[in-house]
Nucleic acid binder design. Structure first.
Length: 271
DNA sequence: CGAGCAACCTGCATGC
DNA sequence: TGCATGCAGGTTGCTC
């Protein structure tokens, strides 16, 4: 799935095309996503205008006249703008058809994504209300992460992937940021020094910014709003590189399991 | 409260 | 070619 850079890439791709546009129709082909697509969306959204498209963590917020469409892409979701007469393909579960003959189309084979609707401030929605800070904002800094980590025994990789700690860091960028900062993914979060947290915070910010600049990472099927892949995969230093030489020391990259997820690291460079 | 893990679902690569 | 297995970008919600 899309981690923060891929969601941000999607946001930038669709935002200029749907801002100010009026919704004509909502088409639900498969309502069974992570949560059911709310049935009232089909009646309530037509006629409304999209005011802007924002992002909170990995959630996209289509802010409309009378409420907000909250979209999460899960593991395999992607959004694309297509001509409204374009036929839907397999796993094209949801469309917002606009009056200008363009359609925003959600494609999601695994259906871990979600489409929700709220008429209250979106940030108050239960799924968004207890999220941690945005990693690229100033609130996410060394002091914050260090304080937050005290007395926490969880592995540092698990810790930075916890959206209550910081949003947007998924399996790819967690491994990459820990490599960039020289920290072994299994170290207990509470045992890491402030200096090392400073390096980690910088690494998280830098890797996410670098990835956004490349349009995100396309492993298999991620595409931006215009159907194009991202190019950050070529710059991954450890993720998916098991057995290949470390770019720093030439030793073979290792992999292990944490929380049912694969972790990639260099046993020489990360301590 | 924190930690660990099963669950949701489909597609694809691999091995027999 | 077919079948079984394991793995994949995420997150909630359950147990302990």
């Amino acid at each position: 799935m899309p981690e923060l850079p891929e969601v941000e890439t999607t946001r930038r791709g669709i935002e200029p095309h749907i801002t100010g546009q009026q919704v004509n129709t909502v088409i639900v082909r498969q309502p069974k996503l992570r949560w059911p697509i709310p049935p009232r969306l089909k009646k309530t959204l037509p006629g409304q205008k999209i005011l802007n498209v924002t992002r909170r963590g990995k959630y996209l917020l289509l802010n409309a006249t009378k409420g907000t469409v909250i979209i999460h892409l899960g593991m395999s979701g992607s959004l694309k703008l297509v001509e409204s007469d374009q036929a839907a393909k397999k796993h094209d579960h949801f469309d917002i058809v606009f009056n200008n003959n363009k359609t925003l189309r959600l494609h999601d084979p695994r259906r871990f994504g979600s489409v929700l609707w709220t008429t209250r401030p979106a940030l108050n929605h239960p799924l968004l209300s207890s999220l941690g800070p945005e990693p690229l904002e100033d609130e996410f800094n060394t002091n914050y992460l260090f304080q937050c980590s005290r007395k926490r025994s969880v592995a540092i990789k698990t810790f930075i992937m916890n959206s209550k700690v910081v949003v947007g860091v998924g399996n790819i960028y967690a491994s990459e940021a820990l490599f960039r900062s020289g920290i072994r993914p299994t170290i207990a979060a509470g045992k890491i020094s402030k200096l090392r947290y400073q390096r980690l915070v910088n690494a998280i910010k830098n890797v996410l910014q670098d990835a956004i600049a490349e349009g995100g990472t396309t492993l298999r099927d991620f595409t931006n709003g215009e159907g194009k892949p991202g190019y950050f995969k070529q710059k991954l230093l450890v993720y998916g590189r098991t057995g290949e030489p470390c770019t720093m020391c030439n030793k073979a990259i290792k992999q292990s399991q944490q929380n049912q997820r694969t972790t990639y690291y260099c046993s020489h460079c990360q301590r």
